[in-house]
Simulated scan of single mutants.
Amino acid sequence: MTKNEIALAPTAALLVIDVQKGFDDASYWGPRNNPAAEANTAALMDAWQETGRPVVLVQHASRTAGSVLAADHPGHAFKDFVAERAGQAALLVTKTVNSSFYGTPDLAAWLTAQGIGQLVVSGIQTNMCVETTARMAGNLGYDVLVPLDATHTFDLAGTDGTALTADELATATAVNLHGGGFARVVTTAQLLAACAAPAQVTA
C-alpha cells in the first residue's frame, strides 16, 4: 500500500452530517467555502451504495429561535441530492447539538450492534458538527477518516471581533483532527479509490 492509499473496511460507515437546505441561506450564514462539497458528498454516497457499505444520515433540529435548521422550518429538510439518496441510508440520526453521538437513535449503540469500527465523517459544518463528531468518534476508539473536501463551513467571528475565513477554519479543523490524533484527514478521491479496491479489514 502506498502512502496515499487507504484501506476501507467492508463495514466502514459513511456519516453524512447536516446536509440540509437551511445551509444554503447565505444571508443567515455568510460566505462559505468549498463549492465542491456537495458533489463530493454525492460521489461518496454513490460509492458506498455501490459497494454495499452503510450510510448514516444525520439531521440537525435546531432549538435556537429563528434558526433555519429548526424542525418546523423548510431549511430543516435535506438538500435534494441527499433526499434523492436517502433510501439507501441504513440509519437516520436526529440531533440538537454538535455531536452526532448525542442524537436519536443512539449512534454508538447502533455502530456496536453492527460491528462497525471505521467511520468516514462528511457534511456541514467542517469546524462544528463534523469536527465535533470526529473528535468524539476518535475518543471512543473508532478509526476515523474525514474527507475535508466533502465538507464546508462559513466565515466566523469571535467575541473580540477576530474573524477567520471558512478556508482558515477548515485548515484549523484539519490540523486539530490530525495533530490531535482524532482522525485522518483524507480526500474524496482517496476514498473513492479505496472503495474501488478490494475491501480491507482494518484494525
Rank of each mutant, 00 (worst) to 15 (best):
D72V: 03
A113T: 04
S67Y: 15
I116N: 05
F154R: 14
A157K: 14
A134W: 00
T104V: 09
N139G: 11
V130C: 13
I124L: 10
M128F: 15
T126N: 14
G141V: 01
G158S: 11
N98Y: 15
A113P: 11
N139D: 14
E131K: 15
G158R: 13
K79S: 02
G138A: 03
G141M: 01
L107P: 08
G141W: 00
D143K: 12
T112M: 00
K79A: 07
T132H: 15
D149I: 04
D149S: 13
A109Q: 06
H73Y: 11
S99C: 12
A109W: 13
L111K: 05
L145Y: 04
V68C: 08
S122E: 03
K79I: 02
A83Q: 10
S99H: 06
V82N: 08
G123D: 09
E131G: 14
G123S: 11
T94D: 15
F101T: 05
V120A: 06
L145D: 08
V82L: 07
D143E: 14
A137M: 00
A86Q: 07
G66C: 12
M128H: 15
F81S: 11
L156S: 12
P74L: 11
Y102M: 15
T104S: 14
L111C: 08
F101D: 06
N139A: 02
A90F: 02
S99R: 11
Q118D: 10
L156F: 04
Q114W: 03
A89T: 01
T133K: 08
G66H: 00
A113K: 10
A109N: 07
G66V: 05
A134N: 08
Q114D: 03
G115Q: 09
M136C: 07
G138M: 01
T153H: 07
G158E: 13
R135M: 09
D149W: 05
D143G: 01
L69Q: 12
A108K: 14
A113H: 03
W110N: 06
F101H: 10
T153M: 02
F81C: 10
T133W: 09
L156E: 13
H76D: 15
V146D: 14
L69K: 13
S99N: 13
H76C: 14
T104I: 05
G158M: 13
E131I: 01
N127M: 03
V121Q: 04
T151R: 09
V68I: 02
A108S: 14
P147T: 03
N127D: 15
T153N: 07
T153R: 03
D80A: 11
I116H: 03
A83C: 05
T104M: 13
L107Y: 05
D106L: 06
V120M: 01
V68T: 09
T112L: 01
Q114Y: 01
A157F: 03
L145M: 12
W110K: 05
H76M: 13
S122M: 03
M136S: 09
K95Q: 12
S99K: 11
P74E: 14
A150W: 02
A65N: 06
N127K: 00
A65L: 08
V120N: 08
K79W: 00
L91D: 04
G138E: 08
G138T: 01
V144W: 00
C129G: 12
G158T: 04
L111R: 02
T132V: 12
R85T: 04
D72N: 12
A150T: 07
M128G: 11
D72P: 04
G87A: 10
L140I: 04
Y142H: 02
L111I: 00
V130R: 03
D72C: 02
